[in-house]
Write a protein that binds this DNA or RNA. Structure first.
Lengths: 178, 178
DNA sequence: ACCTGAACACCGTTCAAGT
DNA sequence: ACCTGAACACCGTTCAAGT
């Protein structure tokens, strides 16, 4: 048995738990997906999850990181699109994870683990958005406000769904300097 | 004992439960405020709450309605203020209830009770905002988009706190027709 | 190192029993 | 009509015991 066999197994099993949790958290919801259900879906015992994750919030963070990595990879293909299309793409991409967005906002007040993730997520988003806006030719003094508005609009559109053309109209509204 | 004693008692006790729930839900959070804790704070048994409310979500709706009535009464004094000040006032007024805002968004996907309240709340807000914008002299074709943006900005500012001047700047951004 | 079954304190909710 | 104590099924998490 090769020396590095264990670490690989560990990463694999961890991945299976994260995959099961991703499905359940996004489709059933965080609150309604008990550790027992996640464990059953991953083919392990509830207690086993605690060998890989500190608690349920840590598992949620693993799910979020996993999805964020995926999304960032795909986003790379859109960096040269017009600004409006990029934001619209982000909304459509995040739409199926809207339950995670709302649960992160709700748990931020209670869970230091989730709060820390939420903070660092927005720090990352802010620099990415500022970069994108600068590349799209926005005036420097408008970048900060436009960054903030973009975040608000994306989150607003996720929690209050509109039709595609309505979305586009809203995004265009904030895409012009004032 | 007068004939109408009971109804008055009932409304009073119901009010005490709602008051206790309001405090706990806003300060401790909905998830971390068990029915047992609400009951203890209201001086009743957990089971008694179920005589007045169908379930925990119905209790949350009672809390929301109670706070909404209060807020609408106070808002009446500000209808003639400039638009930016009205929105800023709303953000400041709602700030201490930001936990309720996020929990409503999170539970909307799971609970028909909360979802129905959320829908009707936004219907009310939409007409109020549209009225306010019309009164403030906004062009008719801008009213819909500006209404939506106002909602997104208020909710965004509640979940991602900024300083007063930063808030004002953001609100001013969306207050000019495009 | 990894995994489990049994247990713990708690949860929202129900229900038979009281007044 | 109103309120309760006991009970139910479930929750997240821990821990002693196994391999």
């Amino acid at each position: 048995m090769p020396r590095n066999r264990r670490p690989i197994d560990r990463a694999e099993k961890r991945g299976e738990i994260v995959a099961a949790a991703t499905d359940l958290f996004t489709e059933v919801g965080y609150d309604d997906s008990s550790m027992a259900k996640v464990a059953a879906a991953a083919g392990v015992t509830p207690t086993t999850i605690y060998w890989y994750f500190d608690d349920k919030d840590a598992l949620l963070v693993a799910v979020l990181d996993h999805l964020l990595t995926q999304a960032l990879e795909e986003a790379a293909a859109h960096v040269d699109d017009p600004w409006v299309d990029q934001v619209l793409w982000a909304v459509e991409r995040l739409e199926r994870y809207s339950r995670l967005v709302t649960v992160v906002h709700a748990r931020t007040a209670t869970s230091p683990t989730i709060d820390a993730w939420h903070e660092s997520f927005h720090a990352l988003m802010d620099t990415m958005l500022a970069d994108g806006l600068a590349r799209a030719g926005a005036a420097e003094e408008d970048v900060e406000a436009m960054t903030r508005m973009s975040v608000f609009v994306v989150e607003g559109l996720l929690t209050h769904p509109l039709s595609q053309p309505e979305r586009r109209k809203i995004i265009e509204m904030i895409s012009r300097p004032h």
